[in-house]
């Protein structure tokens, strides 16, 4: 649920990186933090990790200003993937406006992917969100590891879902991370624009929304 505060002309959106433990959610966020160069970017808050594992969540705020003065914020969260942190996952997931599901491409992790996806469906329902209308991207991470499940097979498997095509990524190497994020922004814009008429009222077109929030250092370098 977008949080619009009319007094401050401030719209806060929430995107949650969901997935099984150790699939690379935190790595995704860290890469976004270092790769992205949006109009506004806050600190990456990596909360209390133990043995490299997220205990609470990670959070990265980024932002954009519309020509109406709209203060558009996007807060990117990760959830802890371990089974026992379900209540934290639920709390973070509540009022989410979009989800990036980070799956692990290794064959041994397919069951965990399925379990985590089931858990996502369940928790979305519990927090009153509809998985069929919620903007969502499914990313298969760790493509750099040899012997991962074949992309064609994965794409085929997911072809009939609303989340096709899947985005292949190697968060560790920074590949596919921005692509996943941009895909999500694209889907998110459709829903948010419908409700807040971003383009008409605030001069934020789809193009400005996506590029403004996902501008990357690399892209700028490329431009030069």
């Amino acid at each position: 649920m977008p949080d619009f505060q009319a007094d401050d002309n401030k719209l806060t959106l929430k995107v949650v990186f969901y997935g099984p433990a150790l699939s690379g959610k935190t790595t995704n966020l860290m890469q976004l933090h270092s790769l992205l160069n949006p109009e506004r970017k806050g600190e990456l808050m990596v909360l209390e990790t133990r043995d490299d594992r997220t205990l609470f969540f990670d959070m990265l705020p980024i932002g954009l200003r519309g020509n109406s003065g709209l203060d558009l914020r996007l807060k990117l969260y990760t959830v802890p993937g371990q089974v026992q942190h379900d209540s934290t996952r639920k709390a973070v997931l509540s009022r989410a406006d979009g989800v990036v599901f980070v799956a692990d491409s290794q064959p041994s992790q397919q069951d965990n992917n399925a379990t985590a996806f089931g858990n996502l469906e369940e928790n979305l329902e519990k927090v009153g969100l509809d998985i069929d209308t919620l903007p969502m991207v499914v990313q298969f991470n760790k493509r750099d590891i040899p012997g991962v499940v074949d992309e064609q097979e994965l794409q085929h498997r997911w072809a009939s879902t609303p989340w096709a095509p899947l985005v292949m990524a190697s968060a560790l190497q920074g590949r596919g991370v921005i692509e996943s994020f941009r895909t999500l922004l694209d889907r998110l814009y459709t829903v948010i624009n419908e409700e807040f008429t971003l383009e008409q009222q605030h001069g934020i077109s789809r193009h400005i929304f996506i590029d403004g929030l996902s501008a990357s250092h690399e892209a700028e370098h490329a431009k030069l």
């Binding site: 600190e43 808050m45 909360l47 209390e48 609470f56 209540s87 639920k90 709390a91 973070v92």
Partner: peptide
């Protein structure tokens, strides 16, 4: 503030989840 806020966030989340539980 980052460290204070981090603690706040964690504490608040903990509070929220505890209440929900």
């Amino acid at each position: 503030m980052m460290f204070v806020a981090k603690y706040r966030l964690a504490a608040n989340l903990h509070h929220d989840t505890t209440e929900a539980s």
